[in-house]
Amino acid sequence: MPKRGDRGGAKTRARIAEIASELFLERGFDEVTIAEVAAAAGVSKVTVFSHFERKEDLLLDRLPDVVDIVRTAIRERANDVDAIRALRRAVLALGEERHVLSGLGGDLEPIMRTIAASPALIARLRAFGYEIETELAAGLDADASFDGDSTLAAALLVAAYRTVAVETVRRRLAGEDLDDLAVSHRRRVKRAFDAVERGISGAHRKAPSA
């Protein structure tokens, strides 16, 4: 698979994902084949699969960013910042940036409609949630300041943020003012992390304010 630092490979990957997404949103995920995506992008099927392991990842191509965000937040945190606090700050930053992964950015309605109509995409989202839990649990295990159950903590944190993000998306699609929603999103993220931290065995610290 091309390295992330390979500019040519990154451009090709982005172009394939963009074209595939247009086809999926227009015709439905299950109605478009990899061969059709390859033809529209002017590449071979082999090239498509050299950039994407699964067909689902052509539409959900931003999901790997979540792994990078979790890994970077934990590994590059300051010595006096524990893993959960570092993750909290990273998640809050997504909201401040109105990043698509926060539910505050991007053109969500056609994407959500396409996902809802495809059991394969729904299953991929569920599987990816488990992958994030595994990555986060590994990060907590490596954090000397954390002495709780890393698997349980990771599952609770992922579930808490998913709940906040899904509600943000729902309210956004309902037409709620984006500025008001961004404020609410930030408040709910803080409350979610506070609630999880209070419930995690071994997290004997006062919940941070940011």
Rank of each mutant, 00 (worst) to 15 (best):
R124V: 01
S118Y: 11
G42N: 06
L94A: 14
A153M: 08
F52G: 02
T168P: 02
R186E: 13
V48I: 06
A90Q: 13
L104R: 00
T33N: 03
T151N: 08
T134M: 07
R187Y: 12
G106V: 06
I16S: 01
K3T: 08
R124T: 06
V164S: 03
T33E: 10
E56K: 01
A137Y: 01
P110Y: 05
D180K: 08
D143H: 07
G95L: 11
A83T: 14
I34Y: 01
R191V: 12
G5P: 00
F24S: 06
L121S: 03
A38L: 02
N79D: 11
L59G: 01
D68S: 12
S184L: 15
A83R: 05
R171E: 15
E109G: 04
S209M: 09
F193G: 01
A195M: 08
A138S: 15
E56G: 01
L94W: 12
M1I: 04
D65H: 08
R89L: 15
L59P: 03
A127D: 12
G148L: 13
L58G: 03
E167C: 07
V37A: 02
A207G: 00
R187V: 08
A210D: 12
L152W: 09
E97A: 13
G42M: 07
A14D: 14
L108V: 09
S21F: 00
R27V: 07
L58K: 00
S201C: 13
L181E: 04
E36W: 03
V100A: 12
V46C: 01
L156T: 08
R54D: 12
E36D: 14
K206E: 12
G199Q: 10
A142I: 08
I34T: 14
L140N: 05
L157T: 07
R75E: 15
I111W: 00
Y161P: 00
K206W: 11
A123C: 04
E167L: 09
R205D: 06
D179P: 11
L121W: 07
A210K: 10
A174E: 15
A38W: 00
S44H: 02
S118P: 15
P208I: 03
A20H: 03
R89H: 14
E22V: 11
L87R: 15
P110F: 11
M1L: 09
V196F: 05
A117K: 10
A93W: 15
T163H: 09
G105V: 07
R54C: 07
P110E: 06
V48D: 01
L173C: 14
R188I: 03
D61R: 06
K206D: 09
A203W: 15
K190S: 08
G199V: 05
L58M: 06
R75H: 13
V189A: 04
R54V: 08
